[in-house]
Design a protein around this nucleic acid. Structure first.
Lengths: 133, 133
DNA sequence: CTTCCTGCAAATCGTTTGCATCAGT
DNA sequence: ACTGATGCAAACGATTTGCAGGAAG
């Protein structure tokens, strides 16, 4: 992630280094507030807008993936850049696992003569740890 | 949709009747503002909160499906209650078509011992009409 | 006639912006 | 030193809430 930042000519500030740390440590999705709270531990005095700004920049750059949770709003996760995959997401703790199967591998018979650009496929469930509670 | 409302013991007000009209007429997703604007035509004097309130209630009741567009925010659409299906969505005009193929029909080999609850699968593209522009 | 629904206004939440200061190169 | 990044405060848009009056049953 630091690599992506320098490659795009950004300065590596304390806060950005910390951001990268946080996302490499995270197992699942983080809300802006989660990120802010974690930032504040090692780096008290950060401001919300710095968090937001960098989340947005990193998303535009492709270093972060966004996902909107119906309850909880927009959250972020370090994106895996090296291969296409989909996610299995725990609806309780939001931990995510990747899997390789993609429904678009086979040609689908879709209606209406669209030019296909993109697709999303996510599976939601409760992970083993959360099932025990 | 009116049926769902009465079945849940809600009163059928002018505004709610109009809401049902709007969604049965719509081909794609509508933002709260879209709904408000269309309401205001036949029914000037509606307030935003009435729109929001009823959108939320109808969503909780399952009469509306929500979808968060990365640009444009949360939008709504009458949900098709009689069978499971997925959507093909035009990223330009947001017109949506349904299709019957579901990747979960076959058992998938997913990691991590999750209890599967739910899934989403959407295909995005540009519809024939929008391609011509 | 009672209860629920509406419309208004104000509150709240998440996010963005303008600007002076500070830090990275 | 120069330029871009930060922190602060204030602005902003979208959504929610409290409350009095009005309409549906």
């Amino acid at each position: 992630m630091i690599g992506i930042m320098t490659a795009n000519g950004w300065r590596i500030t304390e806060q950005r280094r910390e951001l990268a740390e946080i996302f490499s440590r995270a197992e699942g999705y983080l809300s802006p507030k989660d990120v802010y709270d974690q930032m504040a531990v090692a780096h008290p005095g950060v401001s919300f807008d710095t968090v937001y700004r960098n989340l947005r920049l990193l998303s535009e750059m492709g270093a972060l993936e966004q996902f909107y949770f119906m309850d909880g709003g927009l959250k972020f996760r370090a994106s895996c850049l090296d291969h296409h995959h989909h996610h299995l997401i725990c609806i309780n703790c939001e931990k995510t696992l990747t899997f390789e199967y993609c429904p678009m591998e086979q040609p689908l018979d879709l209606p209406g003569n669209f030019k296909i650009i993109n697709h999303r496929f996510e599976v939601f469930g409760v992970c083993e740890a959360c099932r025990k509670e």
